[in-house]
Design a protein around this nucleic acid. Structure first.
Length: 418
RNA sequence: GUGAGCGUAGCUCAACUGGCUAGAGCACCGGACUGUGGAUCCGGAGGUUGGGGGUUCAAAACCCCUCGCUCACCCCA
């Protein structure tokens, strides 16, 4: 690799998205945007970097993201800034900053953009990755929880993603979680010897995460542990039951997964994931939940929130896609006079919205035709001396090989008739 | 951050147990064919074998270091 010595390569965990593949991104983005707009969501765009403090507070000072995965740097003014590792705190900040909560509720936003986490890359996990996010603020009713899951489900089906499963859970709230934690801790403590080293540590730091362990023995032991579902306060319990019943009425298959403990500490009540068996170890295409307390923790009004994030790279890796060929006209010519006529014509056609290209190398006609073929032109328009004189061009359909003489009007008809 | 596997031409891969000038297919460029693409034939270009060091008469191969990729752990989209 001669170039690699001179040119610094793309940095670890980032990637170039090259032209043929960009089409697939565009398809997914367009479908997502279209669907979100249909559900009343408005696009919002926030800066890629924010004060470090925003994520420390919003994402949680003890979370892995904040403690070891942030791209944090000091700018020339001495401020500590961080490339956003997730997007929810930014929206919450924007809502408070612009008093968006004074607008008619509920507020629905969507957003598409890059996120940054200093993680070790592997399948479905990159240092710069892209998320499609949606958030709804100021809607307590669990019907919105169901609507969001339904929208996500529809989106994935529209994009042809199969082999997916909807997982849901409730992680309770400030009122009911502490007592559950207590109970879980003491039960785990009692069986401590049976758990792996990691899980023994988790008993103190974050007992919920024991459910996540992939070791067979830990899974067996944790089966017997109390489930948060059984400890929900009446409000959370009702919320969750209604949520499930709404999903039923939407006829969306789902599985209650008590082990579903999302890694971000701010979640309350509903959490959910949509996983695909066709992904690797990182199998969540999309994940989210409710965060009823974040706004007040930022000093804003008491407004609840709920949303999900979908990983674009993960989505695209399980999304089927067949690129369609671009249709365009390729103009070839013989001689300077014909070239000028071609240049004029190509300009005219482009102004009318006809995609076309003109060859600039004055080589043999054969050579130019060969180029048109390699570029996969739909039609080739030949301008030679004869054509200049008569004003009738030779239009060749490159697939069928059929060639006909056409005037300027004839070009438009042929090209638009497709 | 921890662990494992892998780095040979743009791509897919060869090169025995350490032994000739590191090869082939596809792709690319040109010619056969200067007013007609795709097929065929002929030719050309393209490599410090990821990088550095070591062992050896001799290294793509063996050893050490390093970088990168891949997968898994942790965690997450």
């Amino acid at each position: 690799m001669k170039g690699e010595r001179k040119t610094p390569p793309a940095i670890k965990g980032t990637q170039d998205i090259l032209p043929p593949y960009v089409k697939k991104w565009q398809k997914a983005e367009t479908e997502a945007k279209g669907l979100f707009e249909l559900y009343g969501y408005k696009e919002i765009r926030t800066p890629v970097f924010e004060p470090t403090e925003l994520f420390q507070k919003g994402t949680g000072p003890t979370s892995d993201i904040v403690t070891k995965e942030m791209y944090t740097f000091v700018d020339k003014g001495g401020r500590s800034l961080t490339l956003r590792p997730e997007y929810t705190p930014s929206v919450v900040r924007a809502i408070i900053e612009h008093r968006l909560y004074l607008q008619p509720e509920p507020l629905r936003f969507y957003f598409i953009g890059p996120m940054f986490r200093y993680d070790k890359p592997q399948k479905g996990r990159y240092r710069q990755f892209h998320q499609v996010n949606i958030e709804v603020f100021n809607e307590k009713d669990s019907a919105i929880d169901a609507e969001i899951v339904e929208m996500a489900d529809i989106l994935l089906h529209k994009l042809g993603v199969s082999d997916i499963e909807v997982l849901v859970n409730s992680v309770g709230c400030k009122k009911c979680r502490p007592s559950y934690h207590q109970e879980l801790k003491s039960k785990a403590q009692a069986q401590k010897e049976l758990l792996c080293e990691d899980c023994q540590r988790k008993i103190e730091t974050n007992p919920l995460r024991i459910f996540d362990c992939k070791k067979e023995t830990c899974r067996e032991v944790s089966q017997e542990f109390p489930k948060i579902i059984d400890f929900l306060c009446s409000e959370c319990k009702e919320h969750f039951e209604k949520f499930c019943s709404y999903l039923d009425s939407y006829q969306i298959p789902f599985r209650v997964e008590p082990r579903l403990v999302r890694g971000l500490d701010y979640y309350t009540k509903t959490t959910f994931e949509i996983v695909s068996s066709r992904l690797g170890s990182q199998d969540a295409v999309l994940g989210g939940g409710r965060y009823d307390d974040m706004m007040t923790e930022f000093g804003g009004p008491d407004i609840c929130g709920i949303g999900f994030a979908m990983g674009m790279e993960r989505l695209l890796s399980v999304m089927p896609y067949r690129a369609e060929k671009d249709q365009f006209l390729y103009i070839v010519y013989l001689g300077e006079e014909a070239k000028k006529e071609g240049m004029e014509l190509v300009r005219e056609l482009r102004r009318e919205g006809v995609p076309c290209l003109i060859e600039y190398k004055d080589k043999s006609l054969k050579n130019q035709m060969s180029r048109a073929n390699k570029l996969e032109a739909t039609w080739t328009l030949i301008i030679g001396e004869e054509e200049v004189k008569s004003g009738e061009y030779s239009l060749k359909n490159m697939e069928s090989g059929v060639q006909e003489k056409v005037g300027r009007e004839g070009i438009r008809e042929a090209v638009k008739g497709r």
